[in-house]
Amino acid sequence: MQRRRFVQLGIGSLVVAAAGFVVSGMSRLVVARDTALLLGAPLLLAGFSLAVAAFALAVLASIGVVDVDDSGA
């Protein structure tokens, strides 16, 4: 596994979670609060899942189960 995969997972989780907040906030202008939260919830869940995956990979790499390739290619 390449080191940049950790960075991609971290940035991806932040972007997807931020998109969830934007979707739920912007949809409150059009629909009710509960419906807006239901629209943003899948993105927030996906962002949280990406963050958990990044953490799990970091733990596995630190204990030596997953080899991390430091090369840039």
Rank of each mutant, 00 (worst) to 15 (best):
A36T: 10
P42F: 13
A73F: 14
V68E: 05
A61M: 09
L38F: 15
S71F: 00
Q2W: 08
A61C: 15
G10F: 01
S24F: 01
S13H: 01
G20P: 06
F55A: 13
G64E: 15
R4I: 08
F6Y: 00
A18I: 12
V15T: 10
D69F: 07
A56T: 11
L29C: 09
L14C: 14
M26T: 15
I63A: 09
L38Y: 12
D67V: 14
V30T: 12
Q2T: 09
F48H: 08
M26V: 15
L45S: 06
S24M: 13
V52M: 11
D70C: 09
V23W: 00
R33C: 01
M26Y: 14
L50H: 03
Q8E: 07
G25K: 06
S24N: 04
S27C: 07
R3H: 01
G12K: 02
L43V: 10
G10E: 07
V15L: 11
A58D: 08
A56Y: 02
D70H: 13
G12T: 04
V52G: 12
L43C: 03
D67A: 10
V59E: 14
A19D: 00
A54Q: 12
Q8I: 15
Q2N: 14
A53E: 07
D69C: 09
G47M: 07
Q8T: 09
F6G: 00
A54Y: 01
A61P: 08
A73W: 15
S71D: 14
R33D: 15
S71P: 02
S62Q: 13
V23H: 05
G25H: 08
A32N: 06
A73T: 10
Q2P: 10
M26P: 00
A51W: 07
V65E: 07
A58R: 12
Q2R: 13
G12P: 09
G10A: 05
Q2S: 01
A17D: 04
V15G: 03
S27D: 08
M1P: 06
G64H: 07
A56R: 08
V31R: 06
A19K: 02
S24Y: 01
D69Y: 15
F6L: 09
G25F: 08
A18S: 11
D34A: 10
S71R: 14
V66Y: 13
G40D: 01
L60S: 11
M1G: 04
G20A: 11
M1N: 05
R5P: 02
A18W: 11
V52P: 03
L43D: 02
L60R: 09
G40P: 00
S62F: 14
S24E: 15
V52C: 03
D69L: 15
R5E: 05
V66R: 04
P42C: 09
L60M: 11
V16T: 11
V30Q: 12
G64I: 07
S27F: 13
L43Y: 03
L44F: 04
D70Y: 02
R3M: 00
A17Y: 00
F6N: 01
L29D: 06
